[in-house]
Nucleic acid binder design. Structure first.
Lengths: 334, 334
DNA sequence: GTGAAAGCGCTAACAC
DNA sequence: GTGTTAGCGCTTTCAC
């Protein structure tokens, strides 16, 4: 490993290790001249400080963890992009973990973070969680921020979007477009996120005196096959004339299903969905979306995490909600 | 930080720290009974080993670095997904770094990895690189695997795709569809990846006695605006009847450009592109793609990296090429 | 303004 | 099969 360490620098310079260490960290105790000498030698010998020795000594890692269900997802990829940028600006490292929606995997990741490996955690929790104790355990020890997804019964700092309002408004949009039988493709039911979206949908129907269509399908989109056939069955059996989809992964199968069922979007079925697809406009027909500010969410979550590090953040139990934008396109036109 | 450490466990159990350490690592020197006692106590006290102490001592981190231009990109997100899964199976951690195509940023990441922070690196290098010394420096010190992208003049283990053949065949496909003026949207020109794609395109034209249309645009797609207008200008000025796009980010702007220019895809302009868009089939018109096996590339690269760790990989200078698949859809139909 | 010494938590070499 | 000791490379008292 790095053969050139502080001791080596010190001996080359006829200084003590302590002085070199202080000079490298730009301590005010060290004379400008010494600092310059140390820096020059460090550069000459291509000195790279050993992060483990430093972390061990200082009890901090300059590293944060990001726990998400999946990386290969338009929303999470954007959020991670933002998080990595903030972390880099703060000279921190980013560890990535995927839970694949499994509470067990999530639990094991979280528990391992109790070791001090990271200084803080950004998490968008998995759907399927049995015992949630680990959330509290981790947050008692290090700063933690939930982003996008969260649990009702867990307190903490949370960056979310206006799930209730956006679902309500999206549903209202379909109502105004003339839909009478509006279905809902449910997901994330165990999370606040999913509950609020569902409630927004239900309330919008109620407020417009439409049957609260019980035809929700709960989509476990482990794989595309099962997902597509479930969505297709739903449409074929319930014959909705409008669909609000709570996640992108359930909306795109509607396109395939309608093709197979010979239904026209939007004539026979109007569709709107939560999505971060960059090119929803290019679909056939262009897809109406509830667009969450994914990058901003990641950015905000990471920024707050760093404020927590420097004690410039005091509220341990707050939810900050960013606005989604509803973009009406052809798929929901009346 | 973790108040319960090996010393604490040792004193609780009336054992030495060394014995506890050995028991935890399931050493054969320790009796089954002692192991059981240690494990029980570790569980009871929720002991989590300090990774920094361990890494410092053992000179290994159980961590790998993934360096990519962008996370929010269909190809890289899939590759990272695969890499994280392999790493998790091997009980390793994954650090993510984005270069945003900057050689300077890449250089600073790579140089910092000389500290021993990670045991190995998976990298898809940035386009814009001045001094490439750091590649060699890092690979001399720790195992490193290039994936998807690489430089001609850097040796190493490389997992790529059949860039030449796929570009050749895609171009041939447009020729066979009747195109006479086939343009090429160039990118990654500084990388082997980009050079091979370009060469495949050029050779396919030559072999079919078509003018090697000099109308390449070099797309610096920093932002969508500049990208779209460049693509639009290219189409308006050169009037190609076919386009091979070397990256997804240059192909989708063609859809917008054609709309604005009142051109029909595929009637006026046939289009095929490298892409990992999950739903190319749903675009209007469905987009013909050269689909790289992104997940497999990530999986293969990570798997080989772990083989290098365990000395089950001996060739320090090999290129493994996976096959892309060309999926012909409406956008290139004759 | 600089140095000596201790110690972060763990593991490996060497006893016995 | 278990204990003792030393040390990974760094930072931080505490001296002077």
């Amino acid at each position: 490993m790095g053969e050139v360490n502080i001791k080596k620098l010190a001996s080359e310079l006829n200084l003590s290790a302590a002085t070199v260490s202080r000079a490298l960290r730009d301590s005010h105790e060290i004379s400008a001249e010494t600092k310059a000498r140390v820096m020059e030698m460090a550069k000459k010998l291509a000195y790279e400080p050993n992060p483990f020795a430093s972390s061990l000594r200082q009890q901090k890692s300059k590293t944060i963890a990001v726990i998400v269900p999946e990386v290969a997802n338009n929303f999470f990829a954007l959020a991670i992009k933002a998080i990595e940028e903030v972390a880099r600006a703060k000279d921190h490292h980013v560890l990535i973990y995927q839970t694949h929606e499994s509470g067990e995997i999530e639990s094991s990741f979280m528990t391992s973070l109790l070791s001090g490996r990271v200084d803080g955690v950004l998490i968008s929790p998995a759907c399927h969680v049995a015992n949630k104790k680990y959330f509290q355990k981790v947050s008692e020890k290090i700063p933690m921020v939930f982003f996008d997804r969260d649990h009702d019964d867990i307190e903490g700092v949370k960056i979310t979007t206006d799930d209730y309002e956006s679902a309500y408004n999206a549903t209202l949009h379909l109502v105004e477009a003339g839909c009478k039988k509006i279905g809902y493709l449910a997901a994330l039911e165990t999370l606040t996120t999913g509950k609020k979206r569902l409630q927004g949908y239900l309330d919008a129907l109620k407020d417009n005196n439409l049957e609260s269509m019980p035809a929700l399908i709960e989509g476990n989109c482990e794989n595309n096959e099962s997902c597509r056939s479930k969505v297709k069955d739903f449409i074929a059996e319930r014959k909705p004339d409008g669909i609000v989809s709570s996640i992108e992964e359930l909306a795109l199968p509607c396109y395939y299903a309608c093709k197979e069922l010979n239904l026209n979007i939007p004539k026979d079925l109007k569709l709107i969905t939560y999505s971060n697809l960059a090119h929803a406009e290019l679909l056939n027909p262009p897809l109406s979306t509830i667009n969450q500010p994914a990058f901003e969410i990641g950015n905000e979550a990471a920024t707050i995490l760093f404020k927590m590090f420097s004690k410039r953040w005091y509220d341990p139990n707050i939810t900050i909600s960013l606005k989604s934008s509803i973009i009406k396109r052809e798929s929901s036109r009346s």
